[in-house]
Amino acid sequence: MSERDRFESMIRWYPASWRARYAEELTTLLHDAHGTSKVPLGVRLSLARRGSIERARASGLFGNSLEGPNLTRAGSLLVLWGWALFMVAGAIDAKIGEHWESAIPAAHRSLPRVAFGVVQLAGGLGGLIVLIAAAISLPGFLELLRARKWLEIRRPVIRSMVAGVTAIIATVAIVIWSHHLSPHQRNGGFLFHGLVFVLWSLSIVIALVMATSAATAVAHHTSVSRRVLRLLGSMATALTVLMLGVAVGTIIWWAVMADYAPRFLGSGLLATSNVLPPPLIAAVFLMFAGLTFASIGTIRIAQSVALKHPSLD
């Protein structure tokens, strides 16, 4: 690794837009300060921390450095990251909620049925919105390829494709294998199956993170018209409302199940025999984290509209 590469690897925490502007000066400063000697751990940690702060600012999480179309784009991407967290939470939720209706007395089914229905409907509509947004953004992506800018987005896209194919293969394999097991073995009675299930879940989470990361990289390199950007911003706002619906529906469902069918919540993988099962707590935590990202993103989109930046008019 050359001297220059060594210093460049230390500033990888900074966002690409920041590096395009300051990387040369900062690596030269690091060279002036440390030359061929070892860079102290404190300096490297400081660069990691500052780089992460710049990345958060560039994503619109805080600060006022973005405006106009960049603010709308950043806001929409924050909502997308929030949705990625919701997908993970939704998968946990779906696993826990399998066959829940048979566990609760018929007289008390109506409220959780409505709540669970809201979760499913909002989740389905949210997925549809993301697919439509991807389809709307596709021409911009193809334009990017035609303009020979593939090298700029190659890494995240290839990583996402590899993670996606791995997750699909893992899914097919675990489905085939699970069909040869008894319901008891599939639901926590066979430790090895439980471990494989956890690994499969991890592959899904990694694929999801990689896909969102690739979408973010592509969005930062794609030019879309003001009209399309406004449409994507509106869709992101609708997605945030749906996420709120999913979170509220989940909490209502959980509360009713805890009241009328507490044994149901305490069964299955990672059974705890109480009404606060760790997987469900994790799912709701992920939902609130996702909702926080999405809310900040929606505020950013609203700010970009309220600012009436000339390029958005």
């Binding site: 920041w18 300051y22 000066e25 900062l26 030269t28 400063l29 690091l30 002036d32 300060a33 404190g42 300096v43 400081s46 660069l47 921390r49 500052r50 780089g51 702060i53 710049e54």
Partner: peptide, 28 residues
């Protein structure tokens, strides 16, 4: 002044050694 000259000058007049990350965060 450029980055390195700024670091040295600031250290001379204030005794504070700004790290490269802090310096460029403030410059940004």
């Amino acid at each position: 002044k450029h980055g390195w000259a700024l670091t040295k000058d600031i250290e001379d007049f204030s005794g504070i050694a700004l790290g490269p990350g802090t310096l460029y965060g403030a410059i940004t």
